[in-house]
């Protein structure tokens, strides 16, 4: 192997390694689905507590149970074939998968603990209002980490907007309008970045 051939082969190998490193994140379809579904659920929840929809406020649990079931079924459908896409096992994709699984477990644990607390008289209805800020905070951490790993601008934007959403929803935690504001902020922090991620992966 001549020096020139060696350099060409090494350049080729570098290009291939970089292509693997820069493989796009593949979570766009699932992320867009969850962000959209949660935005709708937040808006409906806000409409219920504002009295615009004539169902009792305690029934808002059904909204979120429906969101969880529909979201889980759609996740299974949308995830089919993802594991055969090129780059699906890149470091960034594995980090994203692990981080979001952990994040969803934590948000679910938070919510379930509040439900158990309410059923046993340990927590109050208003305590459920802390779920959106907690979810935004977890999202800010995850997107911030992924932005650092990948350098993608849309993830930096998502992390910043999630951080802003955490602060705003916490400040409004005792106001019923918080759910509308959370829905609007989720469009900025979740729906739009997921849409961009979806397009990048095509």
């Amino acid at each position: 192997m001549t020096n020139e051939t060696l350099i060409q082969d090494l350049e080729n190998a570098t290009r291939i390694a970089q292509a693997g490193e820069q493989a796009p994140l593949l979570g766009g379809p699932v992320g867009l689905m969850w962000a959209s579904l949660t935005t709708v659920a937040l808006m409906i929840h806000g409409a219920v507590v504002a009295g615009w929809i004539g169902i009792p406020a305690p029934m808002t649990g059904l909204i979120w149970a429906t969101q969880g079931i529909v979201g889980t079924v759609l996740t299974i459908i949308l995830s089919r074939g993802q594991s055969t896409k090129p780059g699906c096992h890149s470091f960034a994709n594995r980090a994203a998968e692990g981080a979001w699984i952990a994040g969803i477990i934590m948000i679910s644990t938070f919510a379930i603990s509040l439900v158990i607390g309410a059923a046993t008289g340990q927590t109050e209805a208003v305590d459920f209002n802390f779920i959106p800020p907690a979810a935004f905070a977890i999202s800010a951490v995850i997107n911030g980490m992924l932005a650092k790993l990948t350098g993608y601008g849309y993830l930096k934007f998502s992390a910043v907007m999630s951080g802003v959403a955490t602060a705003v929803t916490l400040m409004m935690v005792r106001q019923p309008e918080m759910y509308f504001v959370a829905g609007a902020l989720l469009i900025l922090s979740g729906v739009i970045p997921s849409f961009i991620e979806n397009r990048r992966a095509r």
Binding site: D9, L10, N12, A13, T14, I16, A17, Q18, A19, G20, E21, A23, T84, P86, G87, H89, S90, F91
Partner: peptide, 18 residues
């Protein structure tokens, strides 16, 4: 083999078609 090792250093595991 150099190309395979280079790709696997960034994406592991990788499928055969990949």
């Amino acid at each position: 083999r150099l190309a395979v090792m280079a790709y696997l250093s960034a994406v592991s595991p990788a499928s055969f078609p990949e």
